[in-house]
């Protein structure tokens, strides 16, 4: 696991589930607030299971968050220097 974050290709992205923009998902999912994101890259270091960096240093969310990665996903959310990452959890009906 590279702690510096690694860049991704579009192919990697195509295999991951891409979450819709709004609405409640079935599994917890990470969403980026794009106007706030400044490509600092901490998220890719903290939750590499779900985030890799593209060629411009911006996060690519590669799929829903599994139970094992949930703790790391939460840490990534609190660690973002610009509060640009959110964890959207399923609404239990």
């Amino acid at each position: 696991m590279s702690t510096t974050g690694h860049t991704a290709t579009a192919g990697q992205r195509a295999t991951g589930a891409v979450a819709p923009r709004t609405g409640s998902p079935d599994q917890p999912v990470l969403r980026v607030d794009w106007p706030d994101c400044r490509a600092r890259g901490l998220c890719a270091e903290l939750v590499p299971e779900n985030i890799v960096l593209d060629e411009w240093g911006y996060p690519l969310v590669t799929g829903p968050v599994t139970r094992r990665a949930l703790r790391h996903a939460r840490e990534a959310v609190t660690s973002c220097p610009h509060q640009a990452l959110r964890l959207i959890e399923p609404v239990r009906r």
């Binding site: 290709t9 579009a10 992205r13 195509a14 891409v18 923009r21 980026v32 607030d33 794009w34 106007p35 593209d54 060629e55 911006y58 690519l60």
Partner: peptide
Amino acid sequence: IAEVAGLVERRGA
């Protein structure tokens, strides 16, 4: 072109 198209889709406000 296809690669870059894939990198910009759904990654904006």
